[in-house]
Each structure stands twice: as C-alpha cells, then as structure tokens.
Computed example of a mutant assay.
Amino acid sequence: MTGGLREGTSALLVSTDGRLLMQLRDDLPHVSDPGKISLFGGRREGSETFLECVVREIHEEIGYYLPPARFGRIGRYLGPYHSTPGGTLRGQVFLAREVPIDRLKVTEGRLEIVAVDDIERISGRLARPAEYALAIFRKREPTT
C-alpha cells in the first residue's frame, strides 16, 4: 500500500505506583514497529472520535475498561506515516493515570513496565509514537 491517510490514537498509561505501562510489540513482520516498546492504541473505526477510539483500543488491548473521563489529550500529530510509503498519519495521544497493573490482561504484545527514571535506558528501543508521547510527558511532569 502506498499513500493514504491513517487515523489513530495511542495512550501513555501510568500505573497506580507511577510507573509507565507500555507495550512491547510482537517481533513479527506484519506488525508495525516489531520488537519495539510502544504505546497501546490503534486505528479509528468508522465515525468514532479520537477519544472513543482510544477508549475502545485500550480496553481491547489491556482487558481493563478506562472510561473516557480518565483520558486527557496530551498531543496531536499530523505528518508522515513511517510504516507506509507516501502515507500520512493523523493522530492524538492521550494520558491515563492510576491504572492497576494487577487488573490488566494484555492481548497484543507484552506489557512493559518502565520506571520514569528508566526512560533514557530504553530510548533506543522505543517506537516513534512512544518517543513523541514521552517527550510531551517529560515536559509536563515535575522533575524529581
């Protein structure tokens, strides 16, 4: 596939103890960003809003329902879609806090739990959407 617009959402999830809950992508050829650490999320379907999309995708991927009020939009993106030659990606990035690790049932990839202080250590393993979201997150959070 060349060209075209892809619309989607992703969410940076923060556990009840303040760690980041991310997705280690499956290392398969048909998966975008294979083997990388990324955010949970996915494509918009039909006429759903970006918020409706992130609520649905997160529920599907972690097996735990977070209502819309739990998500705050922290960023937007419009630019090249690196997985599709000539493609464009329009997306929104959300943040949800107080997510209970022990209630999650990850259905795609594996759960990657990252302490905020360890972000630099994993930087070479991050997918682009995760890099983007973490840059925003780090600007918003007070330094420890």
Rank of each mutant, 00 (worst) to 15 (best):
M22Q: 05
R97F: 04
A115S: 15
F137G: 02
M22V: 04
G91N: 03
D27T: 06
L21S: 10
P129D: 08
I101N: 03
G46M: 03
E45Y: 11
I136S: 03
A130N: 06
I101D: 02
F40E: 02
V93I: 13
E120T: 11
R6I: 07
E45C: 00
L24H: 03
R56T: 05
L20V: 02
R70T: 01
E61V: 01
R103H: 11
T49S: 15
L89P: 07
K139M: 13
L89S: 09
F137S: 01
T16D: 13
V114T: 12
E108T: 12
R125M: 06
E60A: 10
R138Y: 04
G91P: 05
G86L: 12
G72V: 15
G75C: 04
G8S: 06
G86D: 01
D17R: 15
G79Y: 02
E108I: 10
K36I: 01
V54G: 05
E57Y: 02
Y81L: 13
R56W: 05
E48F: 10
L39A: 06
A115F: 08
P142C: 03
A69D: 12
E120A: 15
I37D: 05
I119C: 06
R138I: 09
S83N: 13
K139W: 04
A130S: 02
P129H: 07
E60N: 10
L24D: 00
L89W: 14
H30E: 14
L24W: 01
V31T: 09
E52I: 06
R121D: 13
K36S: 11
S15F: 03
S38L: 03
V55L: 08
D17N: 11
P34R: 01
T9D: 01
E52Y: 09
H82G: 11
